[in-house]
Design a protein around this nucleic acid. Sequence first.
DNA 1: TGTTTATCCTACTAAATAGATAGGATAATA
DNA 2: TATTATCCTATCTATTTAGTAGGATAAACA
Lengths: 149, 149
Amino acid sequence: MVSEGLLFAYLRYMLSKKTKYGLKALTYLASQQGNTPVQISGIAKHENISQKFLESILLSLRKTGFLGSKKGKGGGYYLIKDPKEILMTDVMRVLEGPIAMVPCVSLNFYEKCDDCPDEASCSVHRLMLEVRDSALEVYRSRTLADLIF
Amino acid sequence: MVSEGLLFAYLRYMLSKKTKYGLKALTYLASQQGNTPVQISGIAKHENISQKFLESILLSLRKTGFLGSKKGKGGGYYLIKDPKEILMTDVMRVLEGPIAMVPCVSLNFYEKCDDCPDEASCSVHRLMLEVRDSALEVYRSRTLADLIF
DNA sequence: TGTTTATCCTACTAAATAGATAGGATAATA
DNA sequence: TATTATCCTATCTATTTAGTAGGATAAACA
């Protein structure tokens, strides 16, 4: 064990760079007028993101139906849907994975905890259920359009 | 990159085992009548936790002022405060670290994001501020006493 | 005083993951 | 056919998580 919470420098933050960069890229695309393709290089430069890393993120957003792409000159990525129609719940689940902090309270990725004999009497289960609901409330009430400044 | 969110088996859950086990142990201690010391081995067996791992967790909970301990025969760990006085915010910060998902919205562990020139105009910043507040609302309104079944 | 008991503490380890990077294949445009 | 930009697979390194090993310390008790 190294991390000790308060005592050491390292801190465990929960949002991955992948999600962070993905959200920034989506917001940037949403802020562009029209749906003309935007090149990876432009997004990467504007948002301070490693281009190669961003490449893989945009690719996964295309495969999951958020973005369209066009190859060759004048190509790039563009939003497929209206930003108002893109819920944060869906974006977060694709980029970050489950919204729940433990598998046993996940709506979309439910799994029984192997160490826990009874969910109903598990204190962690009940607390994390509340945390999940509070996060869901935020993600469900926000769309990509809300992220544009 | 391996994880692809929807496509692969691995899922990124956010609660560490350390926090999970720590919460279970605290709840178990809170459910005991009186403040007689409880041995690590007993907690580990009852909660299905590796004894050695739990040892390090309880140690850190003692060092951060949540638990007292007694060595030798009849020894063990015990709660120092009334479960009603132990806020989940404090427990979570000690076990898991920051409640915020990004350093730039953390109340207790604030740090500027190195890749972001301006927080006010950052879409991730604003979204994560809301998520942090919603989580804080849960943790602030719950004490260890609420976790006992 | 010596034995038992249980916490205390340091060090180590294996496996997984995050966050990239490299380099070429593919397709669209001009 | 040359250029451009996405597509795709493979690889890499540092860090973290979760857990183990083994002994030092201190308290109880005979």
